[in-house]
Design a protein around this nucleic acid. Sequence first.
RNA 1: GGAGGGGUGGCCGAGCGGUCAAUGGCAGCAGACUGUAAAUCUGCCGACGAAAGUCUACGUAAGUUCAAAUCUUACCCCCUCCA
Length: 420
Amino acid sequence: MKYKSSFLNEAEARGFFYQSTNLEAMDEFLVAKGKFGYLGIDVTAKSLHVGHLIPIFLLRLFQKHGHRPIVLAGGGTTKIGDPSFKNTTRPILTDAEIAENMKGVKSCLLPFLRFGDGDSDAVMVNNADWLDELAYIPFLRDIGKYFSVNRMIGFESVKAKLDANDSLSFLEFNYMALQAYDFYKLYLDKGCCIQFGGQDQWGNIVFGVELIRKKLGKEVFGFTNPLLTTSGGQKMGKTAKGAVWLSKDFLSAYDFWQYWRNVDDADVIKLMYLFTDIEIGEIKKMESIRGQELNEIKKILADEVTAVAHGRDSLDEIHRAASGVFGNSEGDLSELTSIPKYFLKNENCESVSVTDILVESNMCVSRSDAKRLLRSNAVCIDGEVVAEDYKISANLKSGEMLKLSCGKKKHLLILRGESK
RNA sequence: GGAGGGGUGGCCGAGCGGUCAAUGGCAGCAGACUGUAAAUCUGCCGACGAAAGUCUACGUAAGUUCAAAUCUUACCCCCUCCA
């Protein structure tokens, strides 16, 4: 074993490790259990997305090895917006929006970490609790004097902005100071000695480590994970529909599962290590699999990630929906909530054009959009390509249903009756 | 405070009085090939319309003109340099 601490061994083996401050000392420190480590999350949206998953699973691992994760919701820092590596200034959110987002973010985290007061339970804090009442002059005198502007502008995250002549407001410039203060505060309050974050957070994290060393003469640690990218170098987690959200309210469990089912071949094993609880040895055995067989591995990946995020109970229906949509199993799909439905109204005796259905069911954003799809032979009913002027006959009986497909992956069931 | 540059479709970025719904690239969508993958090729990519065409859009608001993304004025915002 490379490290003394089991956590570091597994974290590195699974691909969570990018860089850290004094690794040896941190290893030594983590041999004992019940240590605090924190991750800061900005609350810029109501839900977290796949991009947050690496640090979240890292915390999960941290907890698995007997330590205590702290999730710091950036209720205060979100009011400023982290400028690191961003080329546009974040829009400033109102307090009400932030409070709203905070609730959503919390509920996203619940499936991944065990919160509570126990020895290895996770804790959630909000930095607005201390940042909001920060007094400017005392802050400058007590904390600000330890920050070297020369150093700050040397950090890659800031330098990139300055070099590109992008504007960096004073407000944003303070972000890293406040993040450093968070670390300091958590060290004082809870004895938290580790800060986790994506590799883009390196500068901010180191800044906190330095603050604590300068002000208190204590050594704390920073640990960054690599950013989640696809084999093509793209940032992961974006799809046509936008981000891959962790909250059911923004992305159904079915679509979440589909996201993992469709990852690039080259990424499957890597994702398996990061986002499943499957033993490292088991995953190793899958590494040699290539070609079509990888599809089965992708299903395992999708199952495991979805089981953590949405509960194992959700898998059964997802599987039925998937086989209904992609396979030839004709089972009763009408019960499945994963596939959207369109109801022909009883009183409507005339036939309805496909175009209308596509628009009304939100499969297409406009009639033009629907027509474009129809013209490119992308729309099928029960597997048959239909033309632009196709109409759904009014004499569809109750109990009967049609499967309207828009491309290979978007489907809609047409039924008679009222929506429930 | 002074001088200069700029704000164009999801993003980048041309255009600088009519031929501009606006070149090009990226992203996206669909088709073909496949494995619900990738790569590749093809088509599409503001709204409404069967179509002709109509409407809405180049920071905001007024104006000049037969005609404005393009010219004028005011305002807002951003950037650079000087003080």
